[in-house]
Nucleic acid binder design. Structure first.
Length: 653
RNA sequence: GCCGGCGUGGCGCAAUCGGCAGCGCACCUGUCUUGUAAACAGGUGGUUAGGGGUUCGAGUCCCCUCGCCGGCUCCA
């Protein structure tokens, strides 16, 4: 076993496994984290971006933010136990952007409680209590924490136990430590079983705020009781806290559910049902353009388009295994005469298997790439439905690729290039990959898993994506690559998935005839690029804050006359733009020109073409761009050329 | 599914202790005819999510259902 080394990558702490018992120095600066192991430099992980800075962290010099956050969690717990002496402690780790602490309390916290707790925390911070580390034996710890049943349970955990975030529980390894909070007179204000480290005093928590309260299952399991979890955010400075709160406000402003209503793109009528969207004309345009471009690219990449039904007799989903594994997440069946049952499809895969099996297949046909915008229905649990990003009915850009085992590696490699290339065209720029490998429960043969994982990893290497390996995180039937993107305000989203299916070829008894005349099993790659159109659309909407690039914008150009007399001129310009397929409207309403600009601006229309007497006289128009900049008296020919060019080249706008 | 919160015209909100359901935007009509983010005036629109209960009286209190929000669990 080797010890992970801690490094700061662009200021954020990361653990890197050196792969040896004694990894030494770290080299920084080239975009690769490396360890010097016996004079040899080793590439240690694959998660760096160009331009990242790398510096070593020593054991006694922990990353500032997470220590501040963990210390804030202690202050939170102290405040809660002061106000609610009956509260029992769960765990209180630092997390991304902040911290939480779980409590077992007789009644849930209210927002008012949160305010009182935060005030008490501020008082504790002012008291400059010292965090003091004290090693204890297990017996001592048990005696001191006799009133804390959850802490006692943690003490009982063996080394290697993890909490729901995958980080080590606070008590790991052989040594137990208690952190005392000491007042300035030396008396103990509070204590917690904790591995540390902490800031020197409570005064060294420069900026924090409690954010929300929610229930969470003890140790992350649905079978355990729920504790009350209080979340907070904490930062190394007031400015950093302010920046974080600003980011949250910005995220709220660009929430796709809000923009969907403001821009008249889609809605979720209560009458239809939870998680079932209707697309309005403007949202429909964006979706259609998204689909059309995707189709064109798939066609060029050798895909063939298929269509399949939305429902099927139950036998199909018995063969596929869906009824065995996912029945509770499927809509209940429709019962027909003679006991026949039909299910809405939760996936398109079995349908595509049927197409492959519809006749004998030759190696000459492979790779066979079937593509469908396939609408599926999943009965998501009521608490998880979330706008377009987690819906109950959605459309996957779904593809199944049938190939020979020999073709698998090449196919995966070109596929990943294709996926990333297409995502780039929609304006996403930062990608990372996650390789999920064989879980404990799996179907198929170990050799097949190893081969598939190797092919997937080779594909990532070839695509040059930074990646990490999630050991044992694969689906039970397939190892997979998930592609994550970073959006305009720094959030990470999982989008595409590429899976090597190790179950369906057998379950559906797929065969092709090889060159030597023998019958063989094809390899099957399952892949969705957007994931779902709804989700991808929602993510793009938030990425662009509603201001789609011109090629995707529902309305690309609005003509704004200064007076009624200028309407015909703008209609002429509009007609010329329409000849090039540009989506243009002329605002001939009785509103003032300024009001029309405001309206177009709020609708985030990329181009406003304004025309008054001067423009009409010179056969010109005046631009107002979405960012507020202007260009006056542009000859109509030039204006049309500029817009058409921007749309055709899919410029960001 | 679990815990907590919320539900008032299309949208954003108000309505004191249980006492006449109101405002802005949007929409409609009219006047105004405009040079880069809101002209002016008038008007339509609500069984306060749905159902039940308490009360002389319920938007307001209680119960159930539906939906939404924040988390947890889940996400083939």
């Amino acid at each position: 076993m080797s010890e992970p080394i801690r490094v700061l990558v662009s200021g954020g702490e990361r653990r890197v496994d050196t792969g040896t018992p004694a990894g030494e120095a770290l080299e920084a600066g080239t975009g690769v984290v490396a360890a010097r192991v016996g004079g040899e430099l080793r590439d240690l992980d694959h998660r760096l971006h160009d331009g990242d800075t790398v510096e070593p962290v020593t054991a006694d010099q922990p990353e500032g933010r997470s220590v501040v956050r963990h210390s804030a969690a202690h202050v939170l717990a102290q405040a809660v136990q002061e106000l609610f002496p009956e509260a029992r402690l769960g765990i209180g780790p630092p997390i991304e952007n902040g911290f939480y602490y779980d409590f077992d309390v007789p009644r849930p916290f209210t927002p008012e409680d949160l305010g009182r707790i935060e005030s008490t925390m501020r008082r504790i911070v002012k008291e400059r209590q010292r965090f003091s580390r004290r090693p204890v034996t297990e017996a001592e710890a048990r005696a001191e924490l006799a009133d804390e049943p959850y802490k006692l349970e943690l003490i009982g955990l063996k080394r290697g136990g993890t909490d729901e975030d995958g980080s080590a529980v606070e008590v790991g390894g052989g040594e137990l430590t208690i952190y005392d909070n000491l007042r300035r007179d030396g008396t103990t204000a509070w204590k917690d079983l904790c591995r540390g480290p902490h800031v020197p005093t409570t005064r060294d928590i420069p900026a924090f705020r409690l954010t929300r309260v929610a229930a969470a299952y003890w140790r992350g399991s649905e079978d355990n009781p729920q504790l009350q979890r209080i979340y907070g955010t904490a930062w190394e400075s007031k400015e950093a806290l302010r920046a974080h709160l600003d980011m949250l406000a910005e995220a709220e402003k660009r929430d796709h559910r809000r923009l969907g209503a403001e821009l008249d793109l889609f809605s979720f009528p209560e009458e239809i049902g939870s998680g079932l969207a209707v697309w309005h004309p403007r949202g429909g345009i964006v979706r259609r353009v998204m689909e059309e471009y995707s189709r064109r690219r798939h066609e060029a990449a050798g895909y063939e388009f298929v269509y399949t039904p939305h429902l099927s007799k139950e036998a199909l989903f018995q063969t596929s295994g869906h009824l065995q594994w996912y029945a509770e997440a499927m809509y209940p069946p429709m019962e027909l005469d003679q006991g026949h049952r039909y299910y809405l499809k939760p996936m398109n895969c079995p349908m595509h298997m049927m197409i492959f099996r519809s006749r004998g297949r030759s190696y000459r046909e492979l790779p066979l790439r079937l593509f469908e915008f396939g609408t599926v229905y999943r009965y998501e649990k009521s608490g998880v439905v979330h706008g377009l990003t987690r819906a109950r009915g959605f459309t996957q850009d779904d593809s199944h690729i049938f190939c020979t085992p020999e073709q698998l590696a090449d196919e995966l490699a070109s596929l990943l290039d294709f996926v990333v290339g297409l995502l780039r065209d929609y304006g996403l720029t930062e990608f990372t990959a996650e390789l999920s490998t064989r879980p404990e429960k799996f179907v198929g043969e170990v050799e097949d898993w190893d081969a598939a994982e190797a092919a997937l990893e080779a594909a990532i290497e070839r695509a040059g994506l930074p990646y990490e390996v999630a050991e044992g995180e694969g689906a039970f039937y397939a190892p997979k690559i998930d592609v994550h993107v970073r959006d305009a305000i720094g959030r990470r989203w999982q989008l595409s998935t590429l899976q090597v299916d190790l179950q369906f070829p057998d379950r559906f008894d797929l065969e092709y005839q090889a060159a030597d005349g023998t019958r063989r099993r094809p390899s099957v790659i399952h892949r969705a690029l957007f994931g779902s159109e709804e989700r991808f659309f929602g993510i793009l909407l938030e990425h662009y804050a509603g201001a789609f690039p011109a090629w995707l914008a529902p309305v690309q150009v609005v003509g704004i006359p200064i007076g009624d007399a200028h309407v015909p001129h703008l209609e002429d310009v509009a007609a010329r733009l329409r000849e090039h397929g540009i989506r243009v409207e002329v605002d001939a309403s009785p509103d003032r020109m300024q009001k029309k600009i405001r309206t177009a601006q709020k609708q985030k229309v990329p181009y406003m073409l304004i025309a008054g007497d001067d423009d009409v006289a010179r056969s010109a128009v005046s631009f107002r761009y979405r960012d507020g900049s202007q260009k006056n008296g542009v000859p109509v020919d030039e204006a049309v050329a500029e817009i058409v060019d921007a749309v055709e080249r899919r410029l960001p706008a």
